[in-house]
Design a protein around this nucleic acid. Structure first.
Lengths: 349, 349
DNA sequence: TTGATTTTTGCAAACGTTTGCATTAATTTC
DNA sequence: GAAATTAATGCAAACGTTTGCAAAAATCAA
């Protein structure tokens, strides 16, 4: 990149016979500047096509007005929805957002954290990878009192601000819903327990079973990466031999959708023979047939809470310390995949 | 953000009794540094937990090692897929990616362009909004010889590097496919003609009709924003009165999916009564029933070509000037939504 | 009008790093 | 060993902007 014919505040200052500090104050609406001078400066800046250099401003002021966001994958519904809300809200505050994705790789997450620190972002928002169990790469942010907020996939016992859905309640509602609809033999396909979000959904599943005096069976609990391929393989196991379950609670919608595809292939009717509930209320759950019941996590609300927490921390006069947790409500969205009572196994009560 | 206890290269230099310029050269693998000094410096840097300040380095060197990306919406399949490829490829070259979304707003696109310029990104990659017809806000990049690449939604006559799918062929293949499958009364739902990508798909539609001696009917051509709501409204018009068309080529998959939903509601069977082809091969087209035929645009290849073009421009010793276009192949993926021959209107040839 | 107070502006340095050029050190050649 | 050449290192300034503090200007009160 060659040296540019870019105008700087030095050019504006010379043109108006002012000092560069006056020009800087004028352009930044500093209280200690006369209205008259401010207008003159801004007019000249427009006339000269002046464009600030954010690198210089950030270096001098130690404020980049930029927030870093790390999500596992932007192609996933929930992270993409939240990213959009976060970007839009931050813009209202005059902040820029750098969206990064870890591709669910711990190593990439570490590299991104370091890069964003090097870029001197004013804050960091993170939904961790499935495999992040050691959070020390975030220490540099926490220890330097740079605002750090985790959402959705959050650390346990890391002493920072976390904003998450009520995952245990989500697992409980999903499972209870299946029970209410007549299911008595319910599978739960969970993500890896390295992520405590899935731990909680499992706990909700178990709680619902226990509350209805149904046994928690180990062979009805699966832990896996929640991809289409893994879901397919798990279906092969589940339906390898009878008796088949009559309900499946899947910890994400990709898995739920895959279960449905699989069942269509082996002539298991949804919801007559098997009811399904997914998680996250991905828009795909609505467009397929039958539409899939799913737990909605209110991404818009979560995104707004994330930005509000960030702004509080950025504007605070003293560093906030320690653990703080905010729970975003969740809601079960019942659709066709879990409709009606069991045809063959239902017990009328 | 308070002043940090951050180590700088000055600290390293003092610790090793070297100059800061030697430390800088050592950390950056400059050829004019001895292996011995380099190892000593890097070891000390690691020991001290040194983290570079990208703002300072970028300011001084006029290279931020960062690329800006502007897409309409990251929640759309195609932009999200390309963003992922671009980020992964750029990482191989040691570049960071700032992902921004314009939300299909011209004003937001302008603001993002200015912000990214102010952040002194080393290059800019853009898929424009639906409504971008004046490209002058990109002048600052072009005129300062900062690498600028457009993809997918690209400007016409702006004299820069563009990488796009073969949209006319895509429209032609989609329409021809419907004709081959027996359709004779084909609707085309296009995006707004402000985006020349849709202009070309319309041209392909018309070309296919003409080639098969079918009339191009104005009342079978619709121009709209390609959202679910608009698609629903257009369906209401299309199916307001008979005769219904027997084929629909939709310029995006969201529209195709919506058409299918609508038809299910009014008992039009897909593909028996009406065949559908969408565009972009969004993964959703596969999971719904019946699966939708769609034109695949090879996002991975496009992402790779974008980064290759960027790197060429960044590494070029002389600025590249003028228009350069690269066409990425497309392919029609035939699925159930366009299967078989028409039952009632088909003409055996 | 003078003195006190407040507002505005300028000076100078800071921020952390890179780089052109000069100097020094090391290596090669005769 | 001396001279020439090459490699490595240091000096000083640059990059564009912000900010603490001092100085100047403006305003207010007596």
């Amino acid at each position: 990149m060659s040296k540019r014919s870019e105008k700087t505040i030095v050019d504006i200052a010379e043109e108006l016979n002012l000092s560069v500090s006056t020009v800087s104050r004028a352009l930044n609406d500093n209280p200690n500047i006369s209205i008259r001078t401010k207008e003159k400066v801004k007019k000249m800046a427009r006339k000269m096509g002046y464009r600030p250099n954010a690198l210089a401003a950030g270096l001098r002021s130690s404020k980049s007005k930029t927030i870093g966001l790390i999500v596992p994958r932007i192609s996933m519904f929930f992270p993409a929805a939240i990213s959009t809300i976060i970007q839009n809200k931050l813009q209202e505050y005059g902040y820029n957002l750098i969206i990064c994705q870890s591709n669910d790789s711990y190593e990439q997450e570490i590299a991104l954290v370091n890069t964003l620190y090097s870029a001197r972002v004013d804050g960091l928002v993170v939904s961790t990878t499935l495999y992040t169990t050691d959070f020390s790469h975030f220490d540099v942010f926490r220890d330097n009192n740079i605002p750090l907020v985790f959402f959705d996939r959050v650390p346990k016992d890391y002493g920072v601000k976390v904003i998450k859905g009520d995952d245990q309640l989500g697992g409980y509602l999903a499972t209870s819903h299946l029970i209410e609809r007549g299911c008595r033999d319910i599978v739960h396909i969970s993500g890896p327990l390295s992520s405590n979000l899935y731990v909680e959904r499992v706990a909700g599943y178990k709680k619902a079973l226990k509350q209805h005096s149904l046994p928690v069976r180990k062979d009805r609990l699966f832990y896996q990466e929640l991809s289409r391929d893994h879901a397919w393989q798990t279906c092969e196991k589940i339906f390898a031999g009878k008796p088949y379950p009559d309900g499946i609670f899947a910890s994400n919608d990709t898995t739920a959708i895959t279960i449905m595809e699989y069942c269509r292939k082996i002539n298991i009717r949804i919801p007559e023979d098997l009811k399904i509930v997914g998680y996250s209320n991905d828009p795909r759950t609505e467009i397929i047939t039958p539409a899939i019941s799913s737990v909605d996590q209110y991404p818009a609300m979560m995104g707004e809470r994330v930005v509000a927490a960030l702004m509080d921390m950025i504007n605070a006069t003293t560093p906030s310390t320690g653990f703080s947790q905010e729970i975003i409500p969740i809601q079960l969205i019942a659709r066709e995949s879990s409709a009606g009572q069991m045809k063959t196994k239902g017990k009328k009560k």
